[in-house]
Each structure stands twice: as C-alpha cells, then as structure tokens.
Nucleic acid binder design. Sequence first.
DNA 1: CGGTTTTGACCCGCGC
DNA 2: GCGCGGGTCAAAACCG
Length: 261
Amino acid sequence: MGTQENAFDIEKVQALEAKLQHLYRENQDLKHIISVMSNKCNIIQDELNKKRTHEMCTMAESSSSQDSIKRLARETMRAKSSQVFIRTDDADTSLTVKDGYQWKKYGQKNTKDNPYPRAYFRCSTTPDCPVKKKVQRCADDKSILMATYEGEHTHVLFGGTKYSTSSLHGSDPSLAYPVPVNPFRSTITLDLNLCGTNQEINRPTQIFNNKTTNTTTSNNNNKNNNMAEYVASLTRDPNFTATLADAIARSIVNPPYSPKK
DNA sequence: CGGTTTTGACCCGCGC
DNA sequence: GCGCGGGTCAAAACCG
C-alpha cells in the first residue's frame, strides 16, 4: 500500500512540477512582453517630448516677448505633469492621497465642471521641491480621486528611494494603492507619463521597495500582505483582466519578439 | 508653540 | 476692456 501511495505522490509531484515549469515559462514570456511594451512606451514618449520641445522652440523664436517665455515655462511644466486615478473608500471624503511624500495644502477651489472641490498641494518634504499636485474627486464617481502631479521631486522619498512623481507608493504600509482605472471609459488608463518623462518605469514591485531599504521581519509581513492585497485588487478588477488578456492576444497575433525555443 | 488646514481675497491668463 | 475661471497668497483657525 505504501509503495502505491509513493508512486501516486511522485506522479502528483511531477505533475505539479510540470505545471510550475509551464507557469514559469508563461511568466518569463509575460515579463518579456511587459519590458518590450515599456521600451516602446519610452520611445513614443521621447518622440512626443522632442516634438513638444521643437514646437515650443519655434513658438519662442516667432515671438521673443516675455509672454512667450512664460508660455514656454508653462508648457514645459504641463509636459512634465502626470495624472493618476485612485479609488478610495466611499465614506472617505478627504482629498488626501497617501503617496509617501509630505504635502502642504495651500488652497481649495470649487471648479465649474465638477461639483467637488479641487485641492492644491505643494511638496513640503524639502523646502525647495517644486512639485505640486491637484486633487479632485471624479464628477462621475466620487470614490475616485484624480491627482495631477506637476514637476519632478528634487529629493528622495523617505525610506531612501527616489521615486518619480507618478509613483504613488510611499513608505506607509497602509497606503491606498492607485487602481488603474479611467473613470471616463471602461478601459484601463495607460498613463504614458508613468514610463516616459520620468526616468523610472512605474513597476508594481516598486510599491514595496521603499520599506525593504530598512526591512525588518514585520515589514516583510506587511509587504507580503500588501502584495496579496494589491494582486487581489487587480484580479478583482474585470478591466485589468480584460486588458491583460487583450494584450496577450495581441502579442500572440503580432509578436513583439521571437520567443526562444 | 509650531506646523497644517481653511477660506476669502487677490492675481493673471484667456476668450469674447 | 471686461468678465470668468483657475491658481496662489496669507491671515486666522485649528490641532497635536
């Protein structure tokens, strides 16, 4: 009886190993697809930036007035801005986005096209940091916060890692992770600024990296819990799975690379 | 007491 | 030139 059970166990282990190998290969392929897409995203963003710079230069040349210089500065600032959407608790009425940085609120205004007020924040982590952000609830869905970041941080995030302005992942383990949704369409927003103007690509793994710089065992637990929570939130989102499936299908039809055999 | 938030006033750009 | 709307300032209030 024992030998029969052993044979069965070996078979089971082999099946699991085969499955694991298959998943590993799939994972490798998906990683490759993501890196190819990120590269393409960078190229597109570079081209866009070049075009913008060229347009701004021709604009400045055509009129050398003070106005055009001011406009140039504004356009540059706008080009460096990025927008993210964060799903919050329905009961949460505050306009705070926990992104790891320290912000000082310097204003709030009611806007014409949105019944919810817009809050203005300046980065107060260091006195000379030029980064600003605007936070406003989505008119269609009040549980979604729209945060617009302008400029680039001139300092590192508390915890030792320098993050791009669009990396909404701070050192606080209770951070609300941004849900990649577009409130205006039913598809996922792929914000090009996430991997374009900013030097760093917004990788999901970065979410947990700040804590690992001064990691302890309890932090590891937090990290794992956060990872599980984050993965669960992504898989719960039908838009995410639909978009992922679409991306994979496209890559099969029109492969961005030649898979190794 | 120092830092943060609130809020009305003010500034400035833009369209008409 | 004027009015509108978004962005900023700064004094007062609030909070730990």
